[in-house]
Design a binder for these strands. Structure first.
Lengths: 344, 344
DNA sequence: TTGTATGCGTTATCAT
DNA sequence: ATGATAACGCATACAA
């Protein structure tokens, strides 16, 4: 392994000079600096991140905190997609990405302790139980954090625009002529609360009635639960003309149930999903859905987190909202004149 | 931050003694060691991974090398699932997990350089182009590596049993009475080659003919390509009675095409997938598929990698094969007497 | 403009 | 059984 010391010997200068030259300090002669850099390159020098971190107390390493539940976390395309985008952006800015969790080895560590132990400069938090005391501890600590789809006081959050997108969707359905709209929603989280409130509010605005039987709780990423809810909806004396699902994947459960009833989508009943995962694009008919901009979500999370790290003095925590787009598939029947999603 | 020095002062012993006590060295008096440990705990001491790594040249950090392509990599449930299991196992043994990639910051680094820079003790490699010179460089280096589903000479590999599982599947189809079996397979990789060879060989053993028109190349995780291939198969003068797909997700494309032809699964045509992702469980009819044991794949990869790291002298690289199981759904019609997958 | 000295927190060697 | 000391590779305050 070639170190700064090796280079200094080879160049006949001190280690300090090499260090400065390599880091572009202005107080080194241009020729010497250039020479040192060329020798470093020739010798295949690589900085040692560990030594540098020990000295500077900056690891250039970001933590990611995702749940490791089998049903969710990484295996959910929404999150793996956000993570991927976060990773790409972080790396392009010179930061590595390390997973954070409890239970490292025989030590029982909290998330915060794990971060300290690993010297993470900052952490992005998503898809966890935000009420977990260990999560709260981490967010309340001196370590910069960015949360996705959840707001903590005086902390940066990247949010999908859950209120506006549901409003947009309901308006679209309204324009398509739907007045009996059912909503199968996910388990009770702040995201669900926002979506649900937006649903009720928009319906009220438009004069659409939302009878209790049309609003059913199911779970995210759980086709079985959504299937059951769908069955109940289809058994109603007055069926809805359109069903909104918690997410695209859950819709699969509804799809099965609708087919079992011998109904056709969208001729007999309309459906819409949420997330806009790859699956929604390949189903036939193509699923009308609200596409989350996971690319931007992850990228912004990395950007803001790094901003907080490199400019701790001037950084101001903020809530950043990323728009969600209505993707018009072919699962919503136009009960009246023709309308296009482009109008919204 | 509480350091060893702090503890040493508080206990009235030297830093060396504290270090030894904390690491369970035998040459420290039992009472003193116990006392030191209790004080450390009370003071909330956490080892500093960075300092330790600098001194010991062991980071307790593993690299993972996945492609960052949008279509594959993390967003593919197969890999995210393997990764998750790898992560859980690694963490339980005290290792953290960090992503490896090229292009960290303004430095143009190879994978190998990135690993050195970050001081990774070992790397798991999956879902990449194994012919990439940068991958070869890494695998040829002194850094312990484990590859998934690809073998490099004298290196550890964790393999899904692609040959045996296809054999098992074809036998199952045969027992169900199928003689006209089509295979839509993925792009040309060593995995595909194994599966294809096993398909041909097993068919030959059983006296099943495999006309060229029944074997079509498509792509993994690409419903559109599999849809097109399906269309061609359905247009054949003599249709296959069963179609094997590259993977469960690609089957969606076939599903659409079959439906468009007004055919019913499995009454008019039988289908099988590969991977056994969550999607295959929730489709109706439930998809008959070959379930990859991603849990074991990831766990074994972590186990072996750590073994190679902690016992470099005695460790012998090995190829480990993880069985794949036939999961009997309801997409294969029994053309003759009743047969169960349990018989296989 | 360049070099010297020091220390980040830890572990390992060797002496006591 | 315990301690003094050095060293891992790097960055930086300060001296020259």
């Amino acid at each position: 392994m070639v170190t700064i010391k090796d280079i200094s010997k080879r160049c006949g200068v001190s280690a300090a000079t090499v260090s400065k030259a390599l880091n572009g300090y202005p107080d080194i002669g241009e020729e010497t600096a250039e020479y040192i850099r060329s020798v470093a390159k020739e010798m295949g020098y690589l900085p040692n991140a560990t030594a540098r971190a020990l000295k500077t107390n900056r690891s250039n390493n970001l933590g990611v905190l995702f749940v490791d539940q089998t049903h969710c976390g990484l295996t959910h395309e929404y999150f793996s997609s956000v993570l991927n985008s976060f990773k790409v952006e972080a790396e392009s800015r010179g930061f590595d990405v390390t997973f954070i969790s409890k239970n490292i080895g025989r030590f029982e560590m909290s998330y915060y302790e794990h971060c300290k132990y690993r010297n993470c400069d900052g952490v992005v938090i998503a898809s966890v139980n935000f009420k977990d005391p260990d999560v709260v501890e981490l967010v309340s600590s001196e370590i910069p954090t960015v949360t996705i789809d959840h707001v903590f006081d005086n902390r940066t959050a990247i949010l999908s625009d859950n209120i506006e997108c549901i409003r947009q969707l309901v308006h679209y359905l309204y324009e398509c002529g739907h007045r009996r709209i059912a909503y199968i929603h996910g388990e009770d989280t702040s995201v669900t609360q926002k979506r649900l409130a937006s649903f009720h509010r928009t319906c009220a605005e438009l004069g659409i009635e939302t009878p209790d039987e049309y609003v059913k709780q199911a779970f995210y990423h759980d086709p079985k639960a959504s299937g059951l809810a769908t069955r109940e909806l289809l058994s109603l004396p007055v069926r809805p003309t359109c069903i909104m699902y918690p997410d695209d994947f859950s819709f699969i459960g509804g799809m099965n149930e609708i087919e079992r009833h011998g109904l056709e989508i969208p001729d007999d009943i309309s459906v819409v999903g949420h997330d806009g995962i790859y699956l929604s694009e390949v189903l036939r008919p193509r699923l009308t859905t609200l596409k989350q901009d996971t690319e931007t979500l992850g990228k912004k999370a990395a950007e803001k987190l790094i901003e907080a790290i490199v400019s701790p003095k001037t950084y101001i925590p903020q809530q950043l909202t990323v728009p969600t787009y209505l993707v018009e598939g072919r699962t919503v029947k136009k009960l009246n004149a023709s309308v296009s999603a482009a109008d919204f």
